[in-house]
Simulated scan of single mutants.
Amino acid sequence: MPNLRLTRHAVDAIPFPQTGQVFYRDTLLPGFGLRVGTKSKVYFAEKQVQRRTCRVTIGRADLFAPETARKKALALLGEMAEGRNPNKEKKQEVVTKLTLADAFDSFFKARPHLSPHTVENYSRSARLYLRAWRKKPIHEITRQMVLKRHQELSAQVGKTTANNVMRHLRSVYNYAAATHDEFPPNPVQILTQAQAWHREQRR
């Protein structure tokens, strides 16, 4: 990893590699560096946190002056010196803010080729049958909440609809969990573990 003082002139003069990435370390502030790819130059801060290397992206070199990026790096390195992992904290913050409605929206965006019929069925589940949870962070939906709601829907709108709603919730939750590492296990699993799914007659 080459070492040099990261000034505006030095950063602009660094060539883009034809393939892969090259990392440059700043000689002024240990832990501050520049990642150069085939089309981009990005500042980062790097330090050992709990015996593991933690590298935090600061921003693109065409948007941040080296002096500004260095100040941000200094603050991040201070957090990491205290044992905090900014990457993990950022992921956790995203998880705590992701509502059920947000999760359904993300699910649809990731699957643009779903049939209109499928989209409408999923949307109806969120809009009508899971309406009380739409603004709730999805990771706060518990196993007992799922079990209770499944029982309520079974009595109110029928066993088949209750099953379908929970299948939709299970799929959306699985997608959210796949894109956010900090998620707890899917709460809809309780229906399988408790053998609470209703038997359905095939048409």
Rank of each mutant, 00 (worst) to 15 (best):
I190C: 07
D26T: 01
Y122I: 01
K88C: 00
R55H: 07
E79A: 14
E200Q: 14
M166S: 03
K71G: 14
T99L: 10
T99N: 05
T57I: 11
V146S: 05
A162C: 05
R134L: 07
K41L: 09
E140G: 02
H117F: 01
E200T: 11
I138R: 12
R199E: 12
L130D: 09
R5K: 13
K135H: 12
A132K: 15
G59R: 01
A132T: 14
L74K: 13
K148R: 15
A13R: 15
D12K: 15
N87P: 15
L128N: 13
P17T: 06
Q50Y: 12
H180I: 07
Q151L: 03
T161W: 03
T53W: 10
D12L: 12
Q193G: 13
V165N: 07
H117P: 00
R199D: 12
A194I: 04
G78K: 12
K136C: 08
E140A: 11
R170M: 06
P116N: 02
T53K: 00
A176D: 01
R199L: 09
R131Q: 13
R131G: 05
Q144F: 07
S123K: 13
R149L: 13
R170A: 02
S115T: 06
P17M: 03
A110D: 08
F32R: 01
A65I: 14
L128D: 10
V22S: 10
G20W: 05
A194R: 11
P86T: 01
F104S: 02
V95K: 15
V11S: 04
K109S: 11
P112L: 01
Q193E: 12
G37D: 04
K41S: 10
E89M: 12
V146E: 02
K159R: 15
R35S: 14
F107P: 06
V95G: 03
A196H: 07
E93L: 12
V165K: 08
N163C: 02
D62Y: 02
H180Q: 13
K136Y: 04
V22H: 09
E89K: 08
R131T: 10
F44Y: 11
E79G: 15
H198R: 05
W133Y: 15
R5C: 10
L28D: 12
K72N: 14
V146P: 01
Q21A: 07
K97D: 05
G31C: 08
E79K: 15
K41D: 08
V11Q: 05
L76K: 09
Y43H: 05
F23H: 09
R51K: 11
D26Q: 08
A81Y: 06
R203N: 00
K135I: 04
